[in-house]
C-alpha cells in the first residue's frame, strides 16, 4: 500500500467527500490559495473552486455560526479552525448553539458539521497556539470529539465524522501532520466510538491519545527490553468513548496508565481513569490507575521548557514502571 502523511490523508478525504456530496463544503481562514495555515487544504480551491472552498474573514464566531446555520438548512459543512486555541473565540456558537439546538428544539433540526482543528504543543507556537482543550468539548452534551493519531485513522474517522448528523470536533495534532502511514486511496469509514489496540501486551494497559499514542508505543518498545509487556490503546474518539475495549484490556493486565497531553488537572484522562475505577475492571486492578498529563502551566516558548510541560517518552516509561514495579 502507498504511504501518505496525516495531512495528505485529511486533504484526500476532504476532496473525496466534497466531490461525492454536493452538500459538503469547507470554510475557514486562509484555506484558499494559501492552502491553510498547515497546508491541509493545499490545492483544494484550484481543484474544487471557491464555492466549495470558502475563504472567510477572521471572524471565528461568525464563521462557526455560518457553518451551524448552513447545517440546519441541510448542508454538511467542514469548518477549519486555524488553531484549536481559537475555540475560545468561537465558544458561544459551538457550546450554546451547535451542541444544544437539537435538544432545545425538542428534537427538531440537526447540525451535521465537522470542526477540524489542530491542537497540541511541540511546534514552538507558545501559550496561545499550543493548547489541548479537548476536555472542554468532551464535557458538553451534544458534541462528539475525535482525536486521530495516525494518517489511516484520520482518513477513516473523518468520513465517519462527516457522515454523522451531529457536531463533531475533529482534533488534529501539529506534530502528526508530517507522519506517514499506509493509507488506502479509496474512501473508507472507521466508526466513531471504536478504540484501537495499537500494541498488544499483558502487564499494563496504557490508554493514550493523539501524539501520546506514538510516545507510548516508543515507551512500550523500550520497556520490552526490560521484560515489561505494554498494551497501548488509542480510544480514537473521546465522545463516544469505547469503554468496553479499555475495560477488557485492564481486566487482562490489571494495571492502567492514562497518558494525555492536556493539562493533567481536569483533563479527559481523569474521565478515562474514572471509567476504569468505576466499572468491572476495578476488581482486576493490582495497582491504582495512574494519570500522566501535562503540567499546569501555559505552554512556554523555549523548546526545552516546552518539552518539559507535556509527557515525553521518558515520563511515560517512569509512569509505567511506577505501577508495574512498585505494585509487582
Amino acid at each position: 500500500m502507498r504511504e501518505i502523511t496525516y495531512a495528505e490523508a485529511i486533504n484526500e478525504v476532504m476532496c473525496q467527500e466534497i466531490e461525492a456530496n454536493e452538500d459538503v463544503f469547507i470554510l475557514g481562514e486562509d484555506i484558499g490559495i494559501y492552502g491553510g495555515a498547515f497546508g491541509l487544504t493545499r490545492g483544494m480551491i484550484e481543484k474544487l473552486g471557491p464555492e466549495k472552498v470558502l475563504n472567510t474573514p477572521i471572524s471565528e464566531q461568525a464563521i462557526t455560526g455560518v457553518a451551524i446555520g448552513a447545517a440546519l438548512m441541510g448542508m454538511r459543512p467542514i469548518l477549519e479552525l486555524q488553531f484549536s486555541d481559537f475555540v475560545t473565540v468561537a465558544m458561544d456558537q459551538i457550546v450554546n448553539q451547535a451542541a444544544k439546538i437539537r435538544y432545545m428544539y425538542g428534537g427538531k433540526g440537526k447540525v451535521p458539521i465537522v470542526i477540524r482543528t489542530p491542537g497540541g504543543s511541540g511546534a514552538g507556537f507558545a501559550a496561545q497556539h499550543s493548547q489541548s482543550l479537548e476536555a472542554w468539548m468532551a464535557h458538553i452534551p451534544g458534541l462528539k470529539v475525535v482525536q486521530p493519531s495516525t494518517a489511516y485513522d484520520a482518513k477513516g474517522l473523518f468520513r465517519a465524522a462527516l457522515e454523522d448528523d451531529n457536531p463533531v470536533i475533529f482534533y488534529e495534532h501539529k506534530l502528526l501532520y508530517g507522519m506517514k502511514d499506509d493509507v488506502p486511496e479509496e474512501s473508507y469509514v472507521i466508526p466513531l466510538g471504536k478504540a484501537d489496540i495499537k500494541r498488544e501486551g499483558k502487564d499494563v494497559t496504557v490508554v493514550a491519545t493523539s501524539i501520546m499514542v506514538h510516545r507510548a508505543l516508543q515507551a512500550a518498545e523500550e520497556l520490552e527490553k526490560e521484560g515489561i509487556s505494554v498494551e497501548v490503546i488509542d480510544p480514537r474518539t473521546l465522545v463516544p468513548l469505547d469503554i468496553e475495549t479499555i475495560v477488557e484490556s485492564v481486566k487482562k493486565t490489571g494495571r492502567a496508565v492514562v497518558v494525555y497531553e492536556a493539562v493533567q488537572r481536569g483533563g479527559y484522562g481523569a474521565e478515562i481513569a474514572s471509567v476504569i475505577n468505576e466499572g468491572e475492571a476495578f476488581d482486576y486492578l493490582d495497582a491504582p490507575v495512574v494519570r500522566l498529563g501535562g503540567k499546569a502551566v501555559p505552554i512556554p516558548y523555549n523548546p526545552t521548557l516546552e518539552k518539559k510541560a507535556v509527557p515525553q517518552v521518558e515520563d511515560i516509561i517512569n509512569a509505567i514502571k511506577s505501577t508495574v514495579v512498585t505494585y509487582a
Partner: peptide
C-alpha cells in the same frame, strides 16, 4: 436565542445556503 446576537451568525449560515 438566549444569547444576545447569537442568532445572527446562524442566520448568515442559512442565507449562505
Amino acid at each position: 436565542n438566549g444569547i444576545v446576537a447569537g442568532g445572527l451568525p446562524l442566520g448568515c449560515g442559512a442565507a449562505l445556503t
